[in-house]
């Protein structure tokens, strides 16, 4: 029996929203660490960039508070007045999960519901430690969801969730890199110049790559290496290369199970082939920002093609 188009759509969006919630949680965590736990507090700039990564800077300007750890952390976690907060992402994730309750295992549904319950009746985030506890709780539940998905049948249900996650992950990593590259490559400074170790660590933490970096690069922290890791190293699950590869892979599995094959597959494969030829050094020379912007719009086009291919667009 072929899946309902609406079900496919909900699963895909469930994947996207869970991934987004998890990403925002990690971003907030890394920013709190950068701001208050590092020897040299990064202050306002760190929080401004967190808002820009999540594309919520305009929405934040509508709120009365100034940019501060307390206000931005509140805004990005439990403020349900805008779409970019964790609570809204989880709300959307849960609504989509409810709509496809029958397609999920109990464990997967329970994980989504538990993540949502983290915010139930919660009015404030509290201080830095309380904020860290909150976002860690979200990450724990997201990992629980990941584990539940892993244990589910390898059928189109899980493939659609994973497809949404892969598309969202590519988007998040590209956005993170695009906003932070000003910090990575300050104007007038050459790649390889003075390194702000704390800023580096923030980026690596946000994509859970601190350890991976040490494994893959024997030298100390270098901007070119970090950019290489996040763009081209498919060993890192949250790199663009890995997300692109995973998208191709999931679409191929879906085609095999459902017999549905089309423009989304072609688009994803072409992107994958181009990615394989990408050299980080060339990207940096010819303009990282332009490269990432092109990547983001191509990712949007792929998203639309997926909707058309599975008749839920």
């Amino acid at each position: 029996m072929l899946m309902l188009s609406r079900t496919a759509s909900s699963l895909y969006w469930l994947g996207r929203y869970i991934e987004r919630a998890d990403f925002v949680a990690r971003l907030v965590e890394a920013t709190v660490r950068l701001d208050v736990l590092s020897p040299r507090p990064a202050g306002e700039a760190a929080w401004v960039s967190a808002l820009r990564v999540t594309e919520t800077d305009t929405a934040f300007d509508q709120t009365p508070g100034e940019v501060s750890q307390k206000n931005v952390a509140h805004f990005l976690t439990i403020d349900s007045s805008h779409q970019g907060s964790i609570v809204r992402c989880l709300d959307m994730a849960r609504n989509n999960a409810r709509a496809v309750r029958t397609a999920l295992t109990r464990e997967a549904w329970t994980a989504v519901n538990r993540a949502w319950l983290v915010f139930d009746k919660r009015a404030s985030v509290g201080g830095a430690v309380a904020t860290l506890n909150l976002v860690e709780a979200v990450q724990t539940e997201a990992r629980g969801f990941e584990g539940a998905i892993h244990k589910m049948l390898r059928n189109e249900t899980t493939q659609f969730i994973r497809l949404g996650q892969a598309v969202e992950r590519a988007d998040n990593t590209a956005r993170l890199l695009d906003v932070k590259y000003h910090l990575l490559l300050p104007e007038g400074e050459r790649v390889g110049g003075v390194v702000d170790r704390d800023q580096w660590t923030t980026i690596l933490q946000t994509v859970s790559a601190v350890t991976a970096y040490r494994w893959l690069y024997s030298e100390g922290l270098k901007p070119a290496n970090v950019i290489d890791l996040l763009i081209a190293r498919h060993e890192l699950p949250r790199s663009l290369a890995a997300s692109v590869e995973e998208t191709v892979d999931i679409l191929a599995r879906l085609a095999k199970r459902t017999g549905l094959h089309g423009e989304a597959d072609r688009m994803a494969r072409m992107r994958h082939m181009r990615m394989a030829k990408t050299r980080t050094g060339e990207v940096i020379v010819s303009g990282l920002h332009q490269y990432l912007q092109a990547f983001l719009s191509e990712n949007d086009l792929l998203h639309e093609a997926i909707g058309r291919q599975f008749k839920f667009g």
Binding site: M1, L2, M3, L4, S5, R6, E156, T258, K311, F312
Partner: peptide
């Protein structure tokens, strides 16, 4: 919204078309 009636027959919209 998942169901459509055509020709007095009920169909559901799936990712592979009407069933």
């Amino acid at each position: 919204a998942d169901l459509v009636v055509d020709d007095d027959i009920v169909w559901m919209r799936t990712i592979g078309g009407m069933v």
